[in-house]
């Protein structure tokens, strides 16, 4: 029994909030806003995480050996979130990138509705493991998306993709971008890299960075 005796982290909010370095390991379901404003270092969770994980995070890595709640990676600007299981609603909402800051979210299972809503930058990869017979995302995927990219490992695109989104089968070029993310995912969660990489992927991108330009008239 050489484990450090910690006060219980069950339900504790703001774990690692604003951290710049170091590693936190969590073995009991942490509270909301895990790793909010995270600025570096690593948070590893060996169970499910709750809502607003990685809210407005800037750098660092959050690794969830389980599923997460709603709004994971909200307004995230950098760093990476890897989720072994599923995510709730609005994963990656308003995620954005700037110069060398390029946020990444990789989800092993499926995502709830509004994945990548308002997405303005960064990469979301949904592997949909175990959901190969259906779209790995809920409704309204990529609503208002105007930057960045969403990769879906599936042969079933969601039926309700908005008009400003172009969905294209990933070619060699895209696959070389996906490969390191899958590799990292597999290293962390022990999945079969080869099997995953040999699947069919779709890339969703917005065809404009200014989706609402035509909506207004001067008054």
């Amino acid at each position: 029994m050489n484990k450090r005796k910690n006060a219980s982290l069950l339900g504790k909010r703001y774990l690692g909030c604003g951290n710049e370095k170091g590693t936190i390991e969590v073995h009991e379901t942490p509270g909301n806003a895990l790793g909010a404003y995270l600025d570096g270092g690593r948070i590893r969770v060996f169970c499910n995480a709750q809502d607003a994980t990685g809210d407005t995070m800037n750098a660092g890595e959050i690794l969830i050996h389980g599923s997460v709640g709603d709004a994971a990676g909200y307004a995230m600007r950098g760093g990476a979130i890897y989720v072994q299981g599923d995510t709730g609603y609005r994963c990656g909402i308003h995620m954005k990138e700037y110069q060398d800051k390029k946020p990444v979210i990789v989800v092993g299972g499926c995502c709830g509705s509004f994945l990548g809503e308002y997405q303005a930058g960064g990469v979301i990869l949904v592997l949909g493991i175990g959901a190969e017979d259906r779209p790995p995302v809920g409704n309204f995927c990529a609503a208002g998306m105007h930057g960045g990219i969403i990769y879906l490992r599936t042969e079933h695109l969601p039926a309700d993709l908005p008009g400003q989104i172009t969905a294209k089968r990933a070619g060699r070029e895209e696959l070389t971008k996906i490969a390191p993310l899958v590799r990292r995912f597999c290293r962390e969660f022990g999945e079969e890299e080869e099997a995953l990489l040999s699947s069919c992927y779709y890339a969703l991108t917005p065809n404009t960075r200014n989706p609402y330009r035509q909506l207004y008239v001067n008054n």
């Binding site: 607003a52 809210d55 609005r90 909402i93 990138e97 930057g147 960075r209 200014n210």
Partner: peptide, 15 residues
């Protein structure tokens, strides 16, 4: 955010 990209503030805070 990159030049030329719309800056959209959602109606609510999504958290």
């Amino acid at each position: 955010i990159p030049e030329g990209s719309d800056a959209i503030s959602p109606a609510p805070h999504h958290d």
